[in-house]
């Protein structure tokens, strides 16, 4: 499966798309330690199954599937809440010059709001906000496209209500 070449290639892809994993981690964990743990676990799972990635779908699409599976099913740390600081203090964006405080604030608010959503609903929110097509959502979750549409409409309604 893994050759030195494919490892370099894989790390480059991982680097390029690491924000996808960060989003999943932020959705499914409660603090920085858990965030890092889950990030590592997803990276390991991606690497282990990289040999089976046939390139039929985009690398990023394949990452959602592996990342969500890992977050929903394999990664089950007890909710210790080691650090009760709000998430926005830990993961906010300050990297760029055109740092957008408003985006940061709104995202912190959003993550906080969906913290109590079920694992599947969190996945649906992620796929919705990432603008995934119904067939991609259906494929990732393993449900029919019709069912994906129904679930997505429900999530949209829930988000709308949340936005007031």
């Amino acid at each position: 499966m893994s050759t030195p070449n494919s490892e370099t290639e894989f790390v480059a892809l991982l680097d390029e798309h690491q924000n996808i994993i960060h989003k999943i981690c932020r959705l499914y964990t409660n603090n920085e330690v858990e965030h890092e743990d889950l990030f590592q676990e997803i990276s390991i799972q991606l690497w282990r199954s990289y040999g089976r990635f046939e390139g039929k779908s985009k690398f990023s699409t394949w990452m959602y599937r592996v990342g969500l599976n890992t977050a929903i099913t394999l990664y089950r740390k007890e909710k210790k809440r080691l650090n009760t600081q709000p998430l926005n203090d830990q993961f906010t964006a300050i990297a760029q010059e055109e740092y957008n405080a408003q985006v940061d604030e709104q995202m912190a608010w959003l993550y906080q709001k969906i913290k109590d959503f079920s694992e599947i609903d969190k996945a649906l929110v992620l796929l919705y906000l990432e603008d995934k097509r119904y067939d991609e959502i259906a494929e990732t979750l393993g449900i029919s496209a019709g069912n994906a549409r129904v679930k997505m409409n429900r999530i949209k309604e829930r988000l709308k209500k949340m936005l007031g």
Binding site: E7, F10, V11, A12, L14, D15, Q18, N19, H22, K23, R26, H35, F39, Q40, S43, I44, W47, Q90, F91, T92, A93, I94, A95, Q96, N100, V103, D104, M107, L110, L129, E130
Partner: peptide, 19 residues
């Protein structure tokens, strides 16, 4: 959502270490 950035950006060396 599309505009959000993350402080934590792992380097290739760090990512390699995770594997």
């Amino acid at each position: 959502w599309a505009q959000q950035h993350f402080d934590k950006q792992y380097s290739k060396e760090e990512l390699n270490g995770f594997l």
